[in-house]
């Protein structure tokens, strides 16, 4: 340092303290940013350890686990009816929410006049997206299960999930529609297309990758939802394969049930079930990112 005569010029500006503070601040912010990552790593680590303990030490048979239903003894307990229940739920939710969500988004972005009513509808939508999921379960319990006397069937659960997912699908679709440049719409309208022809011929095809990505992410949210299903009356101990009009269980409700059992071996079953759920989720996220990156049109 003593040789560094060039810095004489600035020697009256003492930056050591500033630099130290700067470094400390940087480290602090970095740790904060990494905190979430660390927690995620711990969470995955925990699930893997619990699963490994269950499979390797306790001897949970993965084959039995994936092919049988809930049972009083942990050795014979399995996830199959719950997996099938979850698949049914996601499938029905997709059918019930996709058309509804995309239609609403299309109306709001392409047709709705910019007036008070529209603003109110949109404000209501953001509000709906913030309603706790358990409230949707309560709505389905009051209206479908007991109001329409549907009973505690899978369809009622799917309806609850759809109500929950529709605002998410709408918001994602609106974003995708908004990303379509107006030049495209004008090009179509100037060719003598009606609004609808423009939407169908140009706007929706351009927005579709975004809409599909948003929908998959919304369904990923739905498949992990537990509270609305419990409110609707899901069977916690799913023993037999459900269909839309039968009583039902699902993966998350099964996890909830096992996690609450006093016998600790069931906790390892829960971990294994979580692993299955997370693998399915990773698949869905992967699909969403693939669609986003692969089909997104350049404009």
């Amino acid at each position: 340092m003593s040789l560094d005569t060039g810095s004489d010029l600035l020697s009256d500006v003492d930056l050591t303290w500033v630099k130290r503070k700067e470094l400390l601040f940087h480290v602090l912010l970095f740790s904060a940013a990494m905190f979430g990552v660390a927690m995620l790593a711990l969470l995955i680590f925990d699930i893997l350890i619990e699963t490994a303990y269950g499979v390797l030490i306790l001897g949970i048979d993965v084959g039995t686990f994936l092919t049988s239903g809930a049972s009083r003894t942990w050795e014979q307990a399995g996830l199959l009816p719950a997996i099938i229940g979850s698949i049914w739920l996601v499938f029905l939710t997709l059918i019930l929410s996709f058309v509804l969500g995309v239609s609403t988004a299309t109306y709001l972005e392409e047709y709705a006049p910019r007036n008070r009513t529209t603003r109110l509808i949109e404000a209501n939508l953001t509000n709906l997206a913030g309603v706790p999921s358990v409230a949707y379960g309560l709505l389905a319990l009051g209206v479908f299960v007991n109001g329409f006397r549907m009973g505690e069937i899978l369809l009622a659960g799917a309806l609850a999930l759809s109500l929950l997912v529709v605002p998410i699908v709408i918001v994602a679709s609106q974003e995708a529609l908004r990303a379509v440049p107006d030049g495209m719409r004008n090009g179509s309208l100037a060719t003598g297309a009606t609004r609808w022809q423009t939407i169908r011929g140009v706007v929706i095809p351009s927005a579709l990758p975004g809409i599909v990505t948003g929908t998959i992410l919304a369904l990923a949210r739905a498949i992990g939802e537990t509270a609305p299903l419990i409110m609707v009356g899901a069977v916690l101990e799913a023993r037999s394969t459900p269909d839309p009009t039968s009583l039902f269980g699902s993966m998350p409700t099964m996890i909830y049930y096992w996690a609450f059992r006093p016998v600790t071996e069931f906790h390892n079953l829960a971990a294994l079930a979580i692993l299955v759920l997370l693998i399915i989720l990773v698949g869905m996220y992967g699909l969403a990112f693939f669609v986003r990156n692969h089909y997104e049109t350049r404009v």
Partner: peptide
């Protein structure tokens, strides 16, 4: 990574808490 963190089902966080 943050998106994934936000996408983990809440039941999983519950399990993480007790285990």
């Amino acid at each position: 990574t943050l998106e994934i963190l936000a996408g983990v089902p809440t039941i999983v966080y519950g399990f993480f808490a007790v285990s």
